[in-house]
Each structure stands twice: as C-alpha cells, then as structure tokens.
Design a protein around this nucleic acid. Structure first.
Lengths: 358, 358
DNA sequence: CACCCAGATGTAATCGGTTACAATGCCACC
DNA sequence: GGTGGCATTGTAACCGATTACATCTGGGTG
C-alpha cells in the first residue's frame, strides 16, 4: 500500500461522513464522486460490463462497499424499461394447491433473479380491478394467472397490452399467452383403474363444479377407465361436488343420514372434498378404508397427513414451468404455448390396498 | 358542442394513430399533447389534485380514456420516492398459518392501495440474501417479516437502512421496528384448563422446539394452568416436538410401539403436530377422542376438517394489524410498537367434550 | 515517427412522472 | 382604472439509473 492509498482513504471517509450527514440514500453519483470515475463507469461495474479495467473495477467496488450503496430499483426499471418482476394473481380461497404452485414459481423466479409480486383475487369483482392494476405499465414484466374465473376476452385484452401472460390450469386461447396444465385425464383414469383393479364394484364419483376445466377433464378420465373396464357409469353414484371441503362433508352427511348404503369405493375429484367425506364418516362412526375406500386428487399436503391415496398434481413443477414460460416470454425466448404435465398416483392407506392385498 | 370540439376530435384521432403506430406505451406527454395542457396539469388530474378546473379535468380524463393511458409505476416511484409496496418475507415451510396471515395482510394493504411483494425464505442461508435484496433501496416502502430465524442484529441493521419493519410472532427489540404477537400464554392456559375441567388427569404436552417464542410462551401457559389447578408437571409426559407434523407422528409411533399406555389427554402446542398424532393413532387402530383426548393450537384450516379442538390464533387479524403497522410506519403515523392479539379456544370433538358431557 | 485501432472512460440524453416556483388570467374592490 | 389576490396553468428541475456516442489513451505497425 503506497501513499496514494492513504490519501484516498482520507478523502473517502470525509465523503462518507458527508453522505451520512444529509441522510439521503447513497446513489451512483456518490459512488462516482467517491471513486473518482464517472457514473457511467459505476453503472458498468454494477452491471458487470466487461469493458472496465480491473483497476477501476476494484476502486469502484470498494467505494460501493464503503458507502453501502444499493441500486435503486425504480430508477433502474425506468431506465431499462423492465422491472425484473413477475406478477402472480392468486385465488383467495386455497386448499394448499396454489400455495404449492406459488413456491414452485418462486423457486424458479429467484434462480433467474426475478422477483414476485402477488395479488389475491378474493372475490371476482375485485379480481378484475386487481389484475388491471397489475397491468399498470411497468409494474411487472409478465403475469401468471392461476385458474381465474375471468373471461377469455379479458385475458385477450390484457395480452394486447403487450404484457406476456401465463395461465395455470386453464387452456390457452391466444397467441401471446402461454398455459400450463396438468394431465387430469390420465390422472383420473389411473385412479379409477386402481380402484377397479382392487376389485371394487360400486364406485362413486364425487365430481367437481360444472364448467371448470379440471372437473371436466377428470371426469372424462373416469369415464374412460370405466369404459375400458367394461363398467358403465351409474348416475346414482355421481355426487355433485364443488371442489370445496364442505361439499364432500355435506354430501356424505346427507347420504348417511338418509340411511343409504355406502358404495364400495369413492373417487373424490379433489382432496379437500375427500377430506370432507372422511370427516363426515368419522362423525358417523365410520372409517376409511374399512367402510369405504377413497381416493382424492391433487395430493395436497394434508392428504399425506390423513393417509389419503390420491393423484399427485405436480404443483411445484407447474410453478416452475409457469415461471420459466413467463420469463421466456419476457426475454423473447421461445416457449411452448401449452404444456401439459404428468400426474402420478400416490397410493396410501385410504384406498385399502394393503387391506385387500393381505 | 361547437366547431372547436370537432377540430379537436380530428387532431385527437390523428395523434392517437401516431401513438399506436410507434407502439410505445402512452405517457403523460401523449396525454398532455392530446388534451392541450401541460404535463403538470395531467399529473394533477391523475393525482386528484383539487387545483384543476372542472373543464380541464374532463378534457384530460377524456384524453386518458381515449389513449388508454396508465401511469408508469417506476417513474412515479422514482419521482415520489415511494413505491406503495410492502415487502413480505414468508417462510417456505408453512402449515397454513402464514398463508392465512398473508391473506390478512393483503386484505388490509389493498384497502389502503398498497401492493404486496413476497419472497419465500426456504432455507436460512437463502433467507438473508433475499431479505437483503428486498432492502434494496426503493423496491418496497416497508417490510413485514414472518417469524424468521434471523438474528436480532440483522434486523437491527436492516432497520437502520431507514426501512420500517414489522415482525410477526417475534418480540420487538428495536425502536424502528414494530411487532405483532399472539397471546400464546393465555391461549395455552385456556386449553390446558379446559382439559383439566373435563376431568382428565394424565395430560401430556407435545412441546415445540426450544428457543422459539411461541413454544416457550405456550409452555408457560400450560405450567400456569397446571399450577393453578394444583397439578404438577409430569416430566415423563412432556414430549419434545418441533412443530412439524412429522414430530407428532413419530413421537406417537414410538410411544405406541413401545407399548406404553396412552395418557388421558394431550395438548399439542400446534395443529400440525396434533394431526401427526391423530394419524399415528389411526394407523394403530386408535381414535381421538375415544382413546385419548387431544387439543391443538393455531386452528389451521385442516383442524376444522378433522374436528380438532384447538386454540385459534387470529391469523387474518395478525396480518391486518401487521399491514396497518407497516403502513403507519411508512406514512409517519404512530404505531404501537408491540401488539398482542387475543386467542380463542375452539371446542370441537377431539377433546371429547361431548362424550364427557353425556 | 505518423497513424490507426482497440480498449477504457466520460458526456449527456433519456426513461416517465412529480412538484416547487413562476406566470397568467380574471374578478372584485377601492 | 389600477391593483391585490385567488384560482389555474405552465416551466423546468428533479428522482437515480442506463447507454449511445464521443473522447481519450496507449501501443502496435508500416
């Protein structure tokens, strides 16, 4: 270390004091003054541009360190015309499915140095406004929308604002929009087939709400499996659920209170409903799988907790893929417009496989 | 409508076409040109300043409408030195507690026109970096940290960067930091007292991990209740849990496999562990409350699903209060540095109250 | 030794709003 | 008719970074 270094240090600390004094956040200007280079060079160092000599780089880095400089996001976003942020719209009601997806999105986004901005769409009126807000030019670079009830038309409008959009659990109808789905049909088929293979005869289906893609596709999977096995659909065993815990609980309550005999097995088209069924049975002194076998769909965290056999939706993976698609759309890379991820049957005790097996 | 209006409309549509042609997003400049006022006035209209004549206001609003103008967040944030955004750091592992809190935060934040930016802190190494990122000047106006394992020192450092911070479930140790807690002690006391009142004698406590505030406070509540009832703590009945489902499951498995007799009742210091206990018992052909009464803590969504008696943590409310505190800190309003929210005992069937009652 | 080129750095415009301050216009009142 | 004052509107300087373009430097070459 030679004399010039000392001089440098002295002026450093003076400047630093000055900066601290007026209490304002440290800017590139400060760093530039401190290190004796222009702001352009400072910016180059910050952005890892190769066109900076090692010597200057070090000096600037030291100044940054000394001053505790952190770059201002808004200024950067304004100048670069991008925010490095992805907006995620998230349904308020959640059974654990979407929060899992959200984690997947986050994992990937973070690895690509993106941030997440989330909004919940509690009710559907609210929803529209919130998404509109997100669209406000420049807040986010892309949007990921989770299975919202909003109209295709609205999504199309949104996409026209040049904002890349990725849909989760909703098929694509537009060019600037990508979508990530799960293979509901095969999943449901596998579950149904599993029950049939185990020898159950009277199998009830606890269906999902009309008009939602998942519900429809899962139901189709059931039909396919039954058909292949030579069974035919017994309308009396199709329960009109709505994907909420309550519907499973109430439908089972009604059934039992009416004194009707339980079916051999039941396939609930999502986990929360399956758990509602279990709870109702418990309260009636019945248990799964002794009194009825049961399979759910999604493999929500709690499913493991109660030993529920279920079809796993690759929630984390969906998030990852969605984030990837979004970032690709932003950076101009190509993306598959519609990706369908595979499901997997997770066998636990609720379907009575061990029981039957012995 | 006079002639000048027509002329205006004509020039309007020309301008609009021009704007659409170069495809760039519409700015205040465009609106200003279109409506024939300065950008300052446009800005005033946008920000609802009262110092604009009705006539101009209408003209500007029309231009905004016609052009489909939306203000650019980054530019606004840069100029105003605030982002109207709150950062939330969220533990990756979540039993439903924090997502519930998050909803509460969101509800309130939205009502005050704030946005949320969330980050997950999956593991603790990651955590530090992510929070640091959030701190980057200007990305968010305030931070809400959920029960993180990070050091007090770190939080203090963060607070020194002038960023208001609100802690959830962690007591405050610093001036620029507010905190929101729940009344763990009374909650645990009430639960324990309830079990004692029901006449249970041998009551096990499934404790939480050492060193976390909740675990400690809840345990203290237990002690207080026992003491008041003239019971003394039976060390053999204190199970060393860690707040995860697995610990409840495994500890109960071990106990049963060792052939030890079940206690009369158990108080698990959080719901996931209680559910683990239930699952283990199920697998051993035992049930709650017939073979053992059980109470949990938090009233996670799934608790309702399995009929678990539990102490409700006001999760939504915590979120609301945290958001309120954060926004108050931002806008300079006063805030209570530490707020403790009440808990409530929710009696369901797992504690066997009905059973005993009959 | 003059010249050219490449690499390093600086200059200044730009991103899209906000806002202090200045300027304008209009009316009322003396 | 002059003038003070209020309501409106405009001018232009920021906010803090990025980056196209200009400039400068030093070394290699003919």
């Amino acid at each position: 270390m030679d004399v010039s270094d000392y001089t440098h240090n002295v002026s450093d600390s003076i400047l630093r004091t000055v900066n601290n004094d007026h209490g304002r956040p440290v800017t590139v200007q400060d760093v530039s003054r401190q290190s004796g280079v222009s702001t352009a060079t400072v910016s180059r160092v910050i952005n890892q541009s190769p066109k900076v000599s090692p010597k200057t780089r070090i000096r600037v880095l030291k100044a940054i360190q000394d001053l505790g400089y952190m770059r201002n996001h808004s200024a950067r976003a304004l100048a670069r015309q991008r925010t490095d942020t992805i907006g995620v719209v998230f349904p308020g009601i959640d059974s654990g499915f979407f929060s899992e997806v959200l984690k997947g999105i986050n994992e990937h986004a973070v690895s690509r140095d993106y941030h997440l901005m989330v909004g919940f769409s509690q009710d559907s009126e609210d929803e529209h406004d919130r998404v509109t807000e997100y669209l406000q030019a420049g807040r986010v670079d892309a949007l990921i929308l989770m299975n919202l009830g909003m109209s295709d038309q609205f999504i199309r409008q949104a996409a026209q604002r040049e904002l890349p959009i990725v849909l989760i659990d909703r098929p694509v109808k537009n060019a600037r929009v990508a979508s990530v789905m799960i293979d509901n049909r095969s999943g449901a088929d596998a579950a149904m087939t599993h029950l049939l293979d185990l020898g159950y005869e009277r199998i009830a289906i606890l269906a999902g709400p009309d008009g939602t893609i998942d519900a429809e596709q899962r139901f189709e999977g059931c039909e396919a499996a039954l058909k292949r096995a030579g069974h035919k659909l017994d309308k009396a065993l199709i329960w009109p659920g709505n994907f909420f815990w309550e519907s499973g609980y109430e439908l089972m309550n009604n059934w039992l209170n009416a004194g009707k005999p339980l079916p051999d097995a039941m396939f609930a088209l999502n986990d929360p409903m399956a758990m509602g069924v279990i709870e109702s049975m418990h309260e009636h002194g019945l248990s799964v799988p002794n009194d009825m076998a049961l399979i759910g769909f999604d493999d929500v965290q709690a499913a493991r907790y109660v030993g529920l056999t279920t079809v796993r939706s690759p929630m984390r993976e969906m998030g990852r893929v969605a984030s990837e698609a979004a970032i690709n759309l932003v950076t101009g890379g190509r993306t598959l417009v519609e990706q369908v991820l595979p499901t997997e049957l997770i066998v636990r005790r609720s379907c009575g496989v061990e029981h039957k097996g012995k």
